[in-house]
Design a protein around this nucleic acid. Sequence first.
DNA 1: CTTGAACCTGTAGTTACTACAGGTCCTATA
DNA 2: TATAGGACCTGTAGTAACTACAGGTTCAAG
Lengths: 139, 139
Amino acid sequence: MAGADMPDLGIGALARRTGCKVETIRYYERIGILPEPPRNSGGQRRYHAWHLKRLNFVRRARDLGFTLEDVRGLLRLVDEQGHGCDEVRTMALGHLEAVRARLADLKAMEAVLGEMVARCEGGNVPDCPIIDALYREPA
Amino acid sequence: MAGADMPDLGIGALARRTGCKVETIRYYERIGILPEPPRNSGGQRRYHAWHLKRLNFVRRARDLGFTLEDVRGLLRLVDEQGHGCDEVRTMALGHLEAVRARLADLKAMEAVLGEMVARCEGGNVPDCPIIDALYREPA
DNA sequence: CTTGAACCTGTAGTTACTACAGGTCCTATA
DNA sequence: TATAGGACCTGTAGTAACTACAGGTTCAAG
């Protein structure tokens, strides 16, 4: 029996519960990622559990590196009842490949940087091996 | 005896030799990364070997993931004669750490994505395990 | 001399937010 | 009930690092 049943949330409370910033939530609404919530008599946004769930979905997908366009696609698939699991899988696989490519890039960068720094251990030589390395091998 | 002595280069030739786009070169000039070259009688930019060397330096540093601000700092150090090798080393080390942190992030992403996709292998279940995974664990 | 590629400037678009400015509303306390 | 101050509102502009035009000039080859 933690939170009783939750009537509705202001934008700040939603932000706290999802880890998004308030401005980000309004931004998602503006670009159509999060639907416009109802407003109270004073014109302020009131969110329900549904919005919380959806925003958490968005945030998790973003954390995993999906672009907002990807997220838009995933949400579309989620919203079609009986969504095609293979479409979702295809998107996730494509993204996984992109992540792996980026990983390979970063590993190469790490190797070059690591070697540059290691060669420099010596200290204060007049012609720095790091600068030299940057001038050499334009890839 | 490859290229004889090279008198000067138009912006397009410089672009071809460095792998930068023409617009990028003009952009670097605008923001002060690449100094303004002399112009010919018609007002077009003429580059020399020095610019080629400097732009290659910039490009290589960018390829290694240094920001333009980093590059600005590196160039400043390069231009001070008797530059401090330890300053350069500190920058490179800092950057190496950033790269390693990003690598760790990406590896975590890869693991989660990989597992999501693997659980989905089965095919066309009505409630997709990937979507489920995105709804679960808001991290 | 003509044509078409290369070049010029200046501005706006991209991604995914973030940060104001200048106001209105809500709520708790005195 | 008055009021203080936090939460909220809209709209715009800024960030990084380019990229992509539009609407013109210049260059070089034939």
